[in-house]
Amino acid sequence: MADITAKLVAELRERTGAGMMDCKKALVATEGDIDAAAEKMRMDGMVKADKKASRVAAEGRIAVATGADAIALVEVNSETDFVAKADDFVALADAAARLALAHKPGSVEELVALKDGDATLDEKRRALVAKLGENITIRRFEVVPKAAGPAVHYLHGTKIGVALALHAGDETLAKDLALHVAAMAPKVLSSADVSAEAIAAERKIIEGQVATEQAEAKALAEETGKPYKEKPAEIVAKMIDGKINKFTSEISLHGQPFVKNDAYGAKADEPVEKTLKAKGAAVARFVRLAVGEGIEKKVTDYAAEVAEAAKG
């Protein structure tokens, strides 16, 4: 067996970033061949990454990269917030944002296949999974191109990121709008952009609510002996349409009351669209990413686990 010196272990550790014991085991397995040991650790890391791929990763960070022509936002996830703060994790997220901006890939699969130095982004991700011991995913990204007006970004800590571009308007307004998007989470630019599917789903909910309200009002009237007159169908239809209009306004940037209205001399309930018109401004596009949004997190009841173990 080759002599596995401390110097050789240290050299492999410097090369791979792995722990001392893992480096020593790899060198023992490859009889001191440092190149073979490094390759073995890389392959072992791939296997470990694949084994951890099914574990929920809902923590993480939003990384941003800015250029003269666009802004890129990337969400990279981990299982715990502790790992999301690690320097290597931050570096991976920053590299992902930088590559997304430079290459503007069409999908996450294309993004992770891009090379950053001597390895692809996915190879670096897998190596980091092996090193940090958690599932790590590069979940999604958006690239917002610059339009005729200013393009800005806003990060709320590391958990929420916004990129926004104006067709026309000044940078102060753009920054205030980005802050609004971070706070109020609009889904679309205007009511006209709400999909027919979303409206149909909301209409179904509202119709159910209205029917329940009508039934409860009728039951109460019968219970108290008061007369009850059912609302005409056309009145019910107008009620439903009004609620739909309210729904589309509440989820559109144009329809939401602007959080910075006081700075623009507007009333608190006046919509963003009014301020845009007053300033001769127009939004080209905005994107908001929030860490873990839409991921179903596993809730662990540790007390129940302990109680179950005690029974056993």
Rank of each mutant, 00 (worst) to 15 (best):
E11N: 05
Y264F: 02
A63P: 08
A151V: 12
A268W: 10
T212Q: 10
K298L: 08
S191I: 12
K246H: 05
A36W: 00
A198W: 15
D170V: 04
E134P: 09
G149R: 03
A36S: 12
A91T: 09
I235E: 14
M46R: 01
R61W: 04
C23V: 12
K297G: 13
V9L: 09
G133I: 03
V236P: 12
E213K: 00
D81R: 00
G161Q: 05
V210D: 15
T30M: 10
T120S: 13
A36Q: 06
A100N: 15
V236R: 00
D301S: 07
A93P: 15
A290V: 14
M1C: 07
Q256F: 13
K124A: 12
K115Y: 07
K85M: 09
V64M: 04
A183Y: 01
R125P: 15
A215D: 15
S78T: 07
V9F: 02
E270A: 08
E213D: 05
V9A: 05
A309L: 07
K243P: 09
A96F: 05
A29Y: 02
K51V: 00
V129R: 01
G60V: 05
P271G: 08
L8M: 04
A147V: 02
I206R: 01
G60R: 01
V299C: 00
K218F: 09
K52W: 13
V112R: 06
K267S: 10
A127Y: 05
A147S: 04
A185S: 13
G161N: 07
K7C: 01
A58K: 00
V64Q: 05
E39P: 07
F141V: 08
D170N: 06
A263C: 08
P145T: 15
A65W: 11
K218C: 11
A96K: 04
L101A: 12
I4A: 12
E250I: 09
E270K: 02
A290R: 10
A58E: 02
A147H: 06
A219E: 14
K311M: 13
G45P: 02
R61M: 11
I136R: 01
E75H: 11
T158E: 09
F258S: 10
A6V: 13
E123K: 13
A147R: 01
T80V: 12
E197M: 03
A192V: 11
D262P: 15
V64A: 06
K246S: 11
Y154G: 04
L111F: 09
F82T: 04
K131Q: 13
R42T: 11
L128G: 06
G32H: 02
A102T: 10
D94G: 15
D170Q: 07
